[in-house]
C-alpha cells in the first residue's frame, strides 16, 4: 500500500486543512475533532523554492532543496524537492518518503519530482 499524508476536511463546511488543526479555520464551528482525513493529492505546481546550504546537523547531504507546492485540490504543502531544474509554476508530482533521520527514528514527508 502506498504511504499517504492526509489533509483534514471539516465535516461541517468542507474546508481542507494541512496540517491538522483543532478548530476549522473557515467556519470555526468544528470543535470536536470533526475532520475527515483525505489523502493529499500527489500532483501540484511549484509555488516557490530554495536551495539551503546551511543544514541542521542531522542531514548528511551538502545542500537541501525545499519548496512550497500547491496541490491539485488547492491545499499547499512544504516539501523536499528532487527537481533537476526547479522553476516557479512547474508541474510536480509528490511521493511520501523518509525526509529526516535522527537517533530517534525517521520522519516521512512529501518529496516532489518533475511531473512526466
Amino acid at each position: 500500500m502506498a504511504l499517504e499524508i492526509y489533509a483534514y476536511q471539516c465535516k461541517k463546511c468542507g474546508q481542507l486543512h494541512y496540517p491538522y488543526r483543532m478548530v476549522c479555520k473557515k467556519c470555526g464551528k468544528n470543535k470536536h475533532n470533526e475532520f475527515d482525513p483525505v489523502p493529499l493529492p500527489k500532483k501540484g505546481k511549484l509555488v516557490t523554492f530554495t536551495e539551503l546550504y546551511t543544514l541542521p546537523g542531522d542531514f548528511a547531504v551538502a545542500t537541501l532543496w525545499l519548496g512550497i507546492v500547491q496541490l491539485e485540490n488547492g491545499v499547499a504543502v512544504t516539501g523536499q524537492l528532487r527537481l533537476p531544474k526547479p522553476k516557479i509554476g512547474m508541474n510536480v508530482i509528490g511521493q511520501v518518503e523518509p525526509v529526516r533521520k535522527s537517533e530517534f527514528g525517521q520522519n516521512l514527508g512529501m518529496v516532489f519530482y518533475p511531473a512526466k
Binding site: E51, L52, Q80, I88, V99, R100, G109
Partner: peptide
C-alpha cells in the same frame, strides 16, 4: 521535519 529553517523560509519568500 523537512529541514526547514528560518533562512530557508526567507529564501523561498525572497524568490517569490
Amino acid at each position: 521535519i523537512y529541514g526547514v529553517t528560518l533562512p530557508s523560509l526567507a529564501g523561498m519568500f525572497t524568490r517569490l
